[in-house]
Design a protein around this nucleic acid. Sequence first.
RNA 1: GCGCCCGUAGCUCAGAUGGAUAGAGCGACGGACUUCGAAUCCGAAGGUCGCAGGUUCGAAUCCUGCCGGGCGCGCCA
Length: 558
Amino acid sequence: MIATAADIIKKAIQECKKNGAIKAEALPDIIIEKPKKDEFGDFATNAAMLLAGKEGKPPRQIAELIAKEMRQSENIKKVEVAGPGFINIFMEDDYWLGFLKEIHVSGEKFGSSDIGAGKKIQVEFVSANPTGPLHIGHGRGAAFGDALARLLKTAGYDVATEFYVNDAGAQVKNLAESILLRIKEEAGEKVEFGADHYKGEYISKLAAVYRGLAKKGVEESKEEIGRFALQTILEWIKKDLSDFHVNFDSWFSEKSLFDSGKVQKLIQELKGKGFIYEDSGALWFKSTVFGDDKDRVVVRENGEPTYFASDIAYHHDKYERGFDTLINIWGADHHGYIPRIKSVVQALGHDRESLKILLVQMVSLSRGGQPVTMSKRAGEYITLREVLDEVGADACRFFFLMRKSDAHLEFDLELAKKQAPENPVFYVQYAHARICSIIKHAKTVSSCKLQVASLNLNLESCNSKPFLCLSLKEALDIIKKLASFPDVVRGSAAATEPHRITFYLQELAGLFHSYYNRNRVVTEDKELTNARLYLCEAVRIVIHNGLKLLGVSAPEEM
RNA sequence: GCGCCCGUAGCUCAGAUGGAUAGAGCGACGGACUUCGAAUCCGAAGGUCGCAGGUUCGAAUCCUGCCGGGCGCGCCA
């Protein structure tokens, strides 16, 4: 849609150059926007203001020259010069009505594009330590990552999603020990938990389950407990995610990087390149070369590799798999880790910008405005499961996606559950259900033979009833909104900001509900009815497509 | 102390690459159901865009400095 306007403007400027009205050879980076006010047109551009300096003429004068050319273009209703030199463009009604047909023809594809040009891109997210159940913060990361992957796919990227499983290192040992301690404790022994031990309620649960399975003596089976706990927790995580409608293309084991010797290999390789050196018995990576605050330990004095060591191998492996771009989604508390991992990317010989790290901020839960507190100290946190069970996957996902990912999110459980218009999820889903209901109703009304599937509206004739009814401002506003959907999806994907979709859907649903209350869709007038059904169905398609991008269902009835 | 993020209506938040009189939802207030789903709609109210400078035709947006909040600054992950 924007592209059409851009073409018209560029063509007009070309014409102006041809006839000598404008001399500048280089075109400035003009902006084409959708003005907030209707009176400023369907599109507006600042081209004249940017050209003014080079041309040495007042912006309004240049705007007039360009506007004059633009008026020759197709689909233009009128072009006005306004304010300091804006060119406001108004499109013909039938230009807009044409989108209705496009939506019906494209169906589920409406909104898709190929700006990604098939580039291979990996989105790694959640990657929670398998040392406990997913909490609410992981949930936000999951919703964000999954929606982003859907967006990128729709924008024409070749997307693969991955969960990195931290199944190596000291944490697994700590997990096993924590369970052992619980087992001992329940056997009546007096035990003391260390700072690195996990103390959540789920540890007791695991301990109980393990006791049921245990045949061997407790002391000797620490390794086995570790394996058991890891596997069990991973199953919980997978179940939570699949109930949250998040399904990964792959699960990558950290341990496998050690087992295959890749970690060692990469350390040797970077040593060879001079990026790894020894000091005080430890091996260090020279991240300062690439702008990090300090060098980072890769292998400790005691010979144990750090998490960072396997991360080097992991990212190397990602590039080996042929991805053009990597996206890592992290909790915002990990932001200090960014410089060192970016350094790794460069040391491995890749463009620093080929790895994008997106941060997801914290979630605070509230209930009817009252904050829900949790005690981190006692190892307790609100799990994704609890919220999922209470409000359902749809509301949960939508709420997580209502905010920019790098902004704190306030999540009101009471609101999310409410089946009322103040709940944005229901508001949007209701619009979809309502349209389904209208169409169903239309089919049952004998006087109205619905032709939604085979509608062949005569939109060309400006005197036809469908044309006139769909050209009413209220209808046209909806159509313009619908027409902008592909631009919204493209922008949302390019900016990696799924929240734009939730805002868009709320606005569209609002326009529709308002229209519905003013215009009766199914009436005795067959032509009118069909025209309005045609519009309604287009709205339904776009709401459906939008919700799908968010991984939220579009119910036919509620 | 250093680094990153944030500060917009009573509350929760939008405002893409600087654009025209800064928007939406909720809450509160006043209205609308003989009609396709009132699970909805309509109306009016609500602002020193944290503060102070700077850049320019033009700043919520960019720069600098303060104030206030969050998070990092491990041979943890």
